[in-house]
Simulated assay, not measured.
Amino acid sequence: MTDFHTTGGESRPDLAETGLKGRTGPGAPAETRGKTTIADGVVAKIAGMAAREVPGIHNLGAGMARAIGAVRERVPGGGSGVTRGVKVEVGERQAAVDLDVVVDYGVSIVEVAGEVRINVIGAVERMTGLEVVEVNLTVDDVHLPDEEEGSEEGRVR
């Protein structure tokens, strides 16, 4: 028998049925015995990868974060930068995602933002079982076709 919690007029399966918080005891299926905890960094990596897959997203991160991230990526052991521009809040059953993005010139920001939300929510919910309550985007820049990635450096080399 499935237990249900009722909150605000909606009924949904008890947490014990979601797979994140398991049941215990001999009557419980083996796959539900125990608790699964998903770290913030895991959700941030999934969200970052999912956002980058959307056509029209040039990069993630605000200007200074991109510059520092580019330097850190060149240093051995500095990290891949997948989570640059991604902030998440992860609870027991829900997650919220904030993204700083750079879009390509000429794309519809509204359409790209919608596609990013669809992709991020789908990937995070499919891979973690967490409900994504919101995906907030801040468009920090527009990448122009003739801009170089290193244009933030200086004029003299």
Rank of each mutant, 00 (worst) to 15 (best):
G79K: 09
M49G: 08
D104Q: 11
H5C: 08
T138E: 08
Y105F: 15
H5T: 12
G81K: 11
A123R: 14
G122Y: 07
Q94I: 11
T37K: 05
E149S: 09
R155W: 10
G78A: 10
A62Q: 11
V43G: 03
A47T: 13
T18I: 10
V88L: 04
T83L: 00
P145V: 10
N59P: 00
I46P: 00
I121P: 00
D98H: 14
V42I: 08
P29M: 03
T32R: 14
R93L: 14
R33G: 04
E111T: 15
E92S: 01
V135P: 01
I38A: 02
E10N: 04
G22I: 09
T32D: 03
N136Y: 04
V82H: 00
G8V: 06
A39T: 05
L130H: 14
A95P: 14
G77E: 07
Q94E: 15
D100N: 15
V101W: 04
T6E: 12
R157G: 01
D98F: 11
A113C: 06
G34K: 04
G81I: 12
G78Q: 09
E131D: 15
G25K: 05
G22R: 07
M64P: 04
A44Y: 05
T83K: 09
T36Q: 06
G27L: 12
V124A: 01
T138W: 00
E89S: 12
G9T: 09
V71C: 00
V43W: 06
V135N: 01
H58G: 14
P29Q: 06
D146L: 03
